[in-house]
Simulated assay, not measured.
Amino acid sequence: MHLLVGPTGHITHAGPTIAKLRAEQSLIGQRFLEVFAINRPRAVASMQDLAANVRKKLHLELRDARRTSLKGIMVPLPEDPDSMILNLSFGISIVDAVRDYSLTNADFAATDLAIEMLYLVEAKTAAMAASRRLNMSLQGAKIAAEEQAFTDTLTGLKNRRAMDTVLARMIAGGGSFAVMHIDLDYFKAVNDTLGHAAGDHVLQEVARIMVDETRESDTVARVGGDEFTVILPNIAGYQTLQRVGERIIERLEVPVPFQGQECRISASIGTVWIRAGTPAQAEEVLADADVALYASKRAGRAQQTFYAPELRRAANAEGPPAGRDSRAG
């Protein structure tokens, strides 16, 4: 960017880039000091003062509303020492100038350091955009990995790790909640007679039914081959739990069709209700739900049993329960 200033202090020529800064009116013919304010050196108030500071760095700004800052050096013209040529640059304000005046690299000489600064700014902008995209991608991958770590791949339900996390949160919160252990009756027979593909299909159908019969705030988890756990927060009484259990048992007794065959199962449920403010430990809550589940199995299956201390005493008197294989049948 450059200007020519005549002996009277009037601008006699303006380069195309500086002209863009005052596109609404021509700079030619205007008094230099009426267009530009000299901030440094502070003593410059006239053309005589300006002539005394040739070849010195000047700090200027346009007097219009944008107050664009510039830097420059003024030197006499060799063929006309009474006239001055002023070489201008934006300095560190180049980014604002490019934005405010829609400048491009065509507005600067190839050797102008402004080009290097523009390249650096462009490179920084591109790097920051790439960094944001990478961060978003990593964040998405992290969320997906965390979700996968807490999800049972076959049914899409939560897994045991997720169930443990939710149960710990329920206990720490001190509110009322319930835990249902649900074990499928006769599931082993489905696998043995119709194959594992049929068993997988049944498990997926069971998962869908359990989600249908519980609330969005409830957690349904598959914690074993044919074992499920439901955690239900904010439970006011046994009636709610009784209705949920009855609906699950009723729907799971409906045969599940698979490749022209019918898969027949049922469900046994053991339920523990923890009242608000009751101290609890996760291991004890799960153990109590398991005791109640075994009581349902021993009572004939396809029913729900609520935990009570006498169930544990009865279970201890009868000895350890049968293994998982016999219970699954």
Rank of each mutant, 00 (worst) to 15 (best):
L4E: 11
T8V: 03
H10S: 10
I11F: 00
I11N: 00
A14T: 02
K20L: 01
R22A: 07
E24Q: 11
S26W: 00
S26K: 04
I28Y: 06
R31K: 07
F32Q: 00
A37F: 06
A37E: 13
I38M: 02
N39R: 13
R40C: 08
P41N: 07
R42E: 15
R42S: 15
A43C: 13
S46Y: 06
D49S: 02
L50G: 01
A51N: 14
N53Y: 12
N53C: 12
R55D: 15
H59K: 12
R63F: 00
R63Q: 05
D64A: 00
A65V: 08
T68N: 03
S69G: 09
S69Q: 14
L77M: 11
P78R: 09
P81M: 05
D82R: 04
S83C: 11
F90L: 07
I92P: 14
V95G: 06
D96Q: 14
D96N: 15
V98D: 01
L103M: 02
N105Q: 13
D107V: 00
F108K: 00
A109P: 10
A110G: 15
T111Y: 11
D112M: 04
D112V: 00
L113F: 11
A114R: 03
E122H: 10
E122Y: 10
E122W: 09
A126W: 03
A127E: 12
M128A: 11
A129I: 08
A129M: 12
A129P: 08
A129Q: 14
A130V: 01
R133F: 08
Q139Y: 15
Q139V: 10
G140P: 12
A144S: 13
A144I: 05
E147W: 02
F150I: 05
T155H: 09
K158A: 15
R160Y: 09
R160V: 05
R160P: 09
M163N: 05
T165H: 11
A168Q: 13
M170F: 07
A172G: 08
G174E: 05
S176D: 06
L184D: 02
D185M: 04
Y186E: 07
V190G: 03
N191M: 08
A197V: 11
A198V: 10
D200Y: 06
Q204E: 13
V206I: 13
I209T: 12
M210V: 06
D212R: 12
R215E: 05
S217A: 11
D218N: 04
T219V: 10
T219F: 09
G224Y: 09
G224I: 05
G225I: 04
D226M: 10
F228K: 09
V230F: 12
L232Y: 01
A236W: 04
A236S: 13
R243W: 11
L252D: 06
E253W: 02
E253H: 06
P257K: 10
F258P: 09
Q259L: 15
C263K: 01
I269Y: 04
I274H: 01
I274S: 03
I274L: 10
I274G: 01
R275L: 10
Q281N: 12
A282L: 11
E283N: 08
A289V: 08
A289N: 04
A292S: 02
Y294A: 00
K297H: 03
A299Y: 04
A299C: 03
R301G: 06
R301E: 06
Q303P: 02
T305H: 04
A308E: 14
A308Q: 15
E310S: 07
L311D: 03
L311V: 01
R312K: 12
A315P: 08
A315S: 12
E318P: 02
P320L: 06
P320D: 07
G323D: 15
D325E: 14
R327W: 05
